[in-house]
Design a protein around this nucleic acid. Structure first.
Length: 307
DNA sequence: AAGAACATCAACCGCTCCAAA
DNA sequence: CTTTGGAGCGGTTGATGTTCT
């Protein structure tokens, strides 16, 4: 837009000093930021408005949570990234008190590398290892997701439409007068269910005395695609008794761990929506679709009963 | 101990979006 | 409808810190 770079106006660049921070905070606390462009002069800062806005939104704002990301935050980022791609601001809206910049940095410096180490393409979220004896039964879910993503990621516009239509309900065919159940709320609901059910599973380890082949540390950190092996049929029975077998995605003799289960659910969701949208147009995916899933999640959390 | 290599993250740049004129 | 300019987004840079050789 032809705005002059800050250096042409003799404005300061680089790291902010404590004094500058204090000036900015003091001004905004008293007057609000108002026009960012006008703010620096009023606040007595030799900075461009853009620099002030960035400093405030990414660092000085009082409602910012700093420090290490929790496991749940990491999971949320990975899941949302699988769904939304590099739309950091959209991802940030679902991580309270975290900034898009922080999430972006965290993804690039930690999560991306971790996924790569695990053999997962951080862009497509596809497993790089075609053959893995322990994962062979996951192929169906993986394929379903890939097919769905392939349709969705034909171009940024398609992906963008997908997100905007489902998240914001901004498409003209959606009745804006109704409250919009959000697809990401569905994901959150599912996440809540799987996390609670994993607590059940942990309890079952001691209940059954036939331990699942997993250490607590494996359940939460470096290897989300580790499987929980059921050591014998009695555990299966116990799971059925608990009513969590289907919920936890038991397939054959395996149970998917929480992270993978979340991803599997996302895949089902993307696939289901994608199929509907291409078969009958986006019009088919409206409030009722999300309400329906939320209802089903409230009553039953199995894949088969939802999709 | 020293310097090279790598990791982290605050900050910047260029671009797009969108409301207002 | 077109133009303008403010705000925000995502990619990238570079200063600084940490680890490795």
């Amino acid at each position: 837009m032809g705005r002059s770079p800050s250096f042409e106006k003799g404005l300061k660049k680089g790291p902010w000093t404590t004094e500058e921070d204090q000036k900015l905070v003091a001004y905004i606390e008293e007057h609000g930021h108002g026009s960012w462009r006008a703010l620096p002069v009023k606040a007595g800062l030799q900075r461009c408005g853009k620099s002030c806005r960035l400093r405030w939104t990414n660092y000085l704002r009082p409602d910012i949570k700093r420090g290490k990301f929790s496991l749940q935050e990491e999971q949320t980022i990975i899941q949302l990234h699988a769904l939304l791609g590099n739309r950091w601001s959209a991802i940030a809206t679902h991580l309270p008190k975290r900034t898009d910049n922080e999430i972006k940095n965290y993804w690039n410096t930690h999560l991306k590398k971790r996924l790569t180490k695990m053999g997962i393409d951080p862009i497509t979220h596809k497993s790089r290892t075609a053959v893995n004896t322990n994962l062979s039964h996951m192929t169906q879910w993986e394929n379903a997701r890939l097919e769905a993503e392939a349709r969705l990621v034909r171009g940024p516009r398609v992906a963008s439409n997908f997100y905007q239509r489902f998240h914001y309900g901004s498409a003209p065919f959606i009745n804006k007068s109704l409250p919009q159940p959000l697809c990401l709320d569905v994901l959150k609901a599912w996440q809540g269910i799987t996390l609670s059910k994993l607590s059940d599973l942990t309890r079952l380890e001691t209940f059954n005395n036939q331990t699942l082949a997993v250490e607590p540390s494996d359940m939460k950190t470096e290897n989300p695609k580790n499987n929980l092996e059921i050591s014998n049929g009695s555990v299966n029975t116990a799971l059925e008794d608990e009513g969590v077998q289907n919920t936890l995605g038991v397939a054959g003799d395996m149970i998917y761990q929480d992270d993978y289960l979340m991803e599997a659910f996302t895949n089902h969701l993307v696939n289901d929506v994608s199929n509907r949208s291409f078969d009958g147009g986006f019009e088919d995916v409206d409030n009722n679709y999300w309400s329906n899933i939320l209802d089903k999640l409230g009553n039953s959390s199995s894949f088969s009963s939802i999709f």
